[in-house]
Design a protein around this nucleic acid. Structure first.
Lengths: 149, 149
DNA sequence: TTTATTAGTTAGATGAAACTAACATATACT
DNA sequence: AGTATATGTTAGTTTCATCTAACTAATAAA
């Protein structure tokens, strides 16, 4: 159900409206599956859908959808920028992992990416460059003593 | 199914044998569900199970189970040591996230934790201590220039 | 304005994974 | 050995998300 909400939000943002057909296309399910899902979401007060009309999100649904999109986004960013996972795989993994995260974990992941992305030194923090090196060579650089705290 | 394999491996390790009852207890399902799962896993050549006997893993099943346990373990370690998620939540999240990770992501997570845990400087790398500080205060320490690479 | 095409809906089927209730076996106790 | 209790199994049901096929409504074209 989270996937449906997320897709509806995406479609509204991308092409202005959410149609049954497009929701199904993006989620790789057929129209009747979309319909069934919309009935459930409608009962839950998350979407507004009248017969043969476009699909819309209620305030509550919009809020939930945005939350899920944020989870998705943070996982993609983490996987691509920290772990250097290729974008396609990162996207797929994020799609699955986004549903498995507790609120607490989501918050912390967000903080973590904030911490990395606002690094004042240079674009990519030193320690991450060291990690890149470790991935590439299996060895550490900068292993001599240093006194910075 | 991955959960069943993982649980069987855990039981064998912890108490020596895997019984239907104990598998069910750990996974919060009833005996008949365990039985049905064992039939499937048996057909897939992942477990060995004869009527009224203990459950055992085939070599293939053992390998898969260990792989899943490694995913679980790496996620718990990441969540607790990097993000400082409380152990209970970390455990729950790991249980769900472990199934959502691609091989590639698993490998990189593993490298990442290796990189962090073998830090030669002190127990906890400086940058992680900086992250801890950022979490606690919302501010960065060490924001002045420094020349170490 | 009639008809063709496209999109949406409904009804009914399937498969997966769980359940309960009833039955079977094994083990441990007397 | 005989029986009670635990555990394991089978049969049959439920729920859920998907599907296909058939039908309906909206739209665009002739």
């Amino acid at each position: 159900m989270e996937d449906y909400l997320e897709t509806i939000a995406t479609l509204k943002k991308e092409i202005g409206v959410a149609r049954v057909k497009d929701i199904g296309r993006l989620l790789n399910v057929k129209n009747p599956s979309v319909n069934a899902a919309l009935n459930v979401l409608s009962d839950l007060g998350l979407v507004f859908h009248e017969r043969y009309g476009y699909v819309d999100l209620t305030d509550k649904g919009e809020e939930l959808a945005q939350n899920i999109k944020k989870r998705h986004d943070i996982m993609v960013r983490f996987l691509t920028t920290i772990l250097k996972i290729d974008p396609k795989t990162a996207e797929e993994d994020a799609c699955r992992m986004e549903h498995a995260m507790s609120d607490e974990t989501f918050e912390k992941f967000t903080k973590f990416m904030e911490f990395v992305e606002t690094c004042p030194k240079k674009e990519r923090p030193i320690w991450l460059q060291n990690f890149d090196f470790y991935i590439k060579t299996g060895k550490r650089q900068n292993c001599t003593k240093r006194e910075d705290k």
